[in-house]
Amino acid sequence: MLDRRMHFCPPVSRDRVISDFPKCYNPKACLQEKDDWNSQAKMACKERAERQQAWDRLKMSKAVVVGDLNVGKTCLINRFCKDVFDRDYKATIGVDFEIERFELSGIPFSLQIWDTAGQEKFKCIASAYYRGAHVIITVFDMSDIRTLEHTRQWLVEALRENEPNACSVFLLGTKSDLMSPEMRASLERDAVKLASELQAEFWMVSSKTGENVNEFFFRVAAIAFEDAILRDLEGTATQSIGQGDIIRASLETTPNKEVKKTCC
């Protein structure tokens, strides 16, 4: 008989319970224009919450955060996961990650948030961790227009390690607190245009003040969770990654690919 103590999970914090589908930041750059959960996903959540054991309902999705050095990737993650802001931080070496637990539609859900290095010398290390992503967050510094121009290449590299159409994409501008209202409006127009080309959803945040940070990650979690439910309904198999965390992966067969050899 399976020992359920091995699968015990502590209660989800109240501030991580998502009841309503989170709204987008800018309707002009929105991945999903809707105000409620997908009806099929909602029904599946209700049925599973009623009949399945808690340990059998664990779901996890992987989000990778990419972008230039010093655009604020680590500060963003620390603000959401630890509610702290430290302007004097050390650059990420290789990769790091946090796991945030949510409850959506009564179902426990975890989001792995992978913080990748922006330095060129660590790209070959970080790229290996792009694989298996369900969400790609491309980050730029709103006070440095060059970092916005570089997001396209970061996205290309991240998508190269994943199956076509397997990832939800976000374009995220940080350090909005450094911008005047006029500069914000001008840059936002450029970012919305680029987001449309990248088929991404645009958001603007400030890790220093916390502006839009929680709202952004709630949106990411909701979309990733709903995608996981819909993949289940289409027919899936369970497999483990990382430290044995349970996720869902498509059963679709893909042609054998030549193993890529990388080095630093």
Rank of each mutant, 00 (worst) to 15 (best):
Q243W: 11
V192S: 02
E157F: 00
E188F: 03
R152F: 00
R231L: 14
E201Q: 12
I145T: 13
D190Q: 10
A221F: 10
A191G: 03
P181S: 08
V205F: 08
T236V: 06
S196G: 13
N214T: 07
M183V: 11
D232W: 04
G210S: 12
L198K: 12
N165Q: 14
G173T: 01
N212E: 14
H150K: 11
P164V: 15
A224V: 11
A228P: 00
N162C: 10
Q199L: 04
K208P: 00
Q239R: 15
Q199Y: 08
A221M: 11
R248S: 12
K175E: 06
S207C: 07
V169A: 05
R189F: 12
E149W: 05
D177L: 03
D245P: 00
K208T: 04
A195N: 13
D227P: 00
K193L: 07
R152Y: 06
N214I: 01
F225A: 08
L230S: 11
A191Q: 02
S186K: 13
P164Y: 06
S196Q: 14
R248L: 09
H150R: 13
L187S: 03
V169N: 06
F218D: 14
W203S: 14
A228W: 02
I229M: 13
F218Y: 13
L159I: 02
S168M: 05
I229V: 15
G244C: 15
T174N: 12
R152E: 14
K193C: 02
E188M: 12
F202T: 04
E157G: 01
T209Q: 04
T238G: 04
T238D: 14
L187E: 01
D227G: 05
I145P: 00
D177R: 03
D232Y: 04
A158Y: 07
I145C: 02
R219C: 07
N165L: 12
L171V: 00
G244N: 09
E182Y: 03
S176V: 00
L230Q: 14
R184A: 13
R231I: 04
S207K: 01
A185C: 08
N165G: 09
R152D: 06
L194T: 11
W154P: 01
N212T: 01
E163Y: 02
R146T: 15
S180L: 14
R146C: 10
G242R: 08
E226F: 00
V169H: 05
A185Y: 04
S186L: 12
E201F: 04
L198V: 03
L172N: 06
D177V: 01
F170C: 08
S168T: 06
R248Y: 12
D232A: 01
K175Q: 08
L198S: 09
I247H: 14
A237L: 06
A224P: 04
R219G: 09
G210L: 12
C167M: 05
V213K: 07
R184L: 15
G244R: 07
A166G: 02
T236P: 00
A166R: 03
T174Y: 02
A185E: 09
P181H: 03
G242A: 15
T236A: 12
